[in-house]
């Protein structure tokens, strides 16, 4: 076995290991879709996305809003103001906030 073939063999067996990890405990015919629910499946992951059409069914039927007036919307996660926040990192800069103000005017 030359070096090239040997390396192929190494990678190939790594693929087998990789697929074994992915396969877990499912035992199904090749190509069949898994129907077994993995034992540690989290039943509530991403549940917010599981009820999008609740918003359509009745007025206000989503996100727990009970007031009509949306103007005085509270910040979900912002203990500090936007301007203070931009001083501490580069995710949002003063330039970005300026741009957002420009965007606001276009609407």
């Amino acid at each position: 076995m030359n070096a090239k073939t040997k390396k192929n063999a190494v990678v190939h067996s790594a693929l087998l290991v990789a697929l074994s990890l992915a396969g877990g405990q499912a035992v199904h015919a090749a190509g069949a879709k898994a129907t077994e629910i993995p034992p540690d499946w989290q039943p509530c992951a991403g549940v917010a996305k599981a009820g999008m059409n609740d918003c359509a069914s009745k007025l206000h039927a989503c996100a727990g809003l009970s007031k009509i007036d949306n103007e005085a919307d509270s910040y979900v996660y912002m203990p500090k103001g936007l301007c203070e926040r931009i001083a501490k990192g580069t995710v949002l800069t003063k330039e970005d906030v300026k741009k957002m103000m420009e965007m606001q005017k276009k609407m």
Binding site: A48, K49, M52, C55, A56, L59, H60, C62, A63, L65, I68, N70, E71, D73, S74, Y75, V76, Y77, M78, L82, V91, L92, M100, M103, Q104, M107
Partner: peptide, 27 residues
């Protein structure tokens, strides 16, 4: 209109947290 803003809040929660409720509602 509120329904649609609510829907976008559920779909883009991190963006909303980043820019704050006021700008998110405007956009």
């Amino acid at each position: 209109r509120n329904n649609y803003v609510q829907t976008l809040k559920i779909t883009y929660p991190v963006l909303r947290r980043l820019i704050g409720g006021h700008y998110f509602n405007v956009f």
